[in-house]
Computed example of a mutant assay.
Amino acid sequence: MERRENLRDLEEALGYLFETPDLLDQALTHKSYANERGSGIRDNERLEFLGDAVLDLVVSHLLYDLRPPLTEGKMSKVRAFLVSEPSLAEVARSFGLGRYLLLGKGEEQTGGREKPSILSGAFEALVAAIYLDGGFDLAREFVDAVFRPLLEAEGPGGLDRDFKTRLQEHCQGRYGTAPTYRLVGEWGPDHDKTFEVEIRLGNRVLGRGRGRSKKEAEQRAAQGALDVLE
């Protein structure tokens, strides 16, 4: 009962009420949880597969409808950015998906609720759950509501470059120099490390970011720095 009440809060945040609540529950069930609980528990991997396809189609249609029209190459680059793991993980965080996930003990203990791969997969599974529950039109409305504001705020031209590239262009254009990145921490076992990176512009700290790889940490740090500078 408590689980269902918690998911009601999530449905309110999503702006979508499920006719079949079990689909939402499955979308949030990681394979580590299902493996620990045994048979009868369905994880979200098949939904993730379907949601990936639905996202590609809806985002492609959204980009196709933009005016002025984008070239095929531009649409491909922007779509790749929007449906990338870091982008989808950020969308998942905006809805607070992490706290609703069902994880196995191992994933729970190693920060699974914040892992980009798990969050992005859960969001793809969520899109599939909405598609199966309400049909393509409602799934399209949901995805459109998520990504259209981002396109309108950034413009397509701001979404086909990674955050490090955008930050470098911003700093060189405004300050005449490029930022530097420094690894300031790493912890965890070799197979599951977390890295923290700091960005500086001269003596000024622009931001810090954490990730499961140095590259991911740098991208997150650059994203945070852009939020401050822009």
Rank of each mutant, 00 (worst) to 15 (best):
E2D: 15
E2G: 14
R3T: 00
D9M: 13
L14V: 03
D25G: 09
Q26L: 04
S39V: 12
E45C: 09
R46L: 15
D52S: 15
D52C: 08
A53K: 14
L55I: 09
L62G: 07
K74T: 11
K74Q: 13
M75P: 02
M75I: 02
K77Q: 10
A80P: 01
V83A: 05
V83H: 02
V91Q: 06
L97P: 13
Q109Y: 13
Q109V: 10
R113I: 05
E114C: 06
K115I: 00
S117E: 05
G121W: 13
L132A: 07
G134S: 12
G135V: 01
A145F: 03
P149R: 02
P149F: 01
L151H: 04
G155D: 09
R161T: 10
K164P: 10
K164W: 01
T165F: 04
H170F: 15
C171P: 03
G173P: 13
G173V: 13
G176I: 10
P179Y: 01
Y181H: 10
V197S: 04
E198C: 05
E198F: 00
E198T: 05
N203W: 14
L206H: 09
G211E: 11
E216R: 06
E216S: 08
R220Y: 12
A221H: 09
A225D: 12
V228T: 07
V228Y: 12
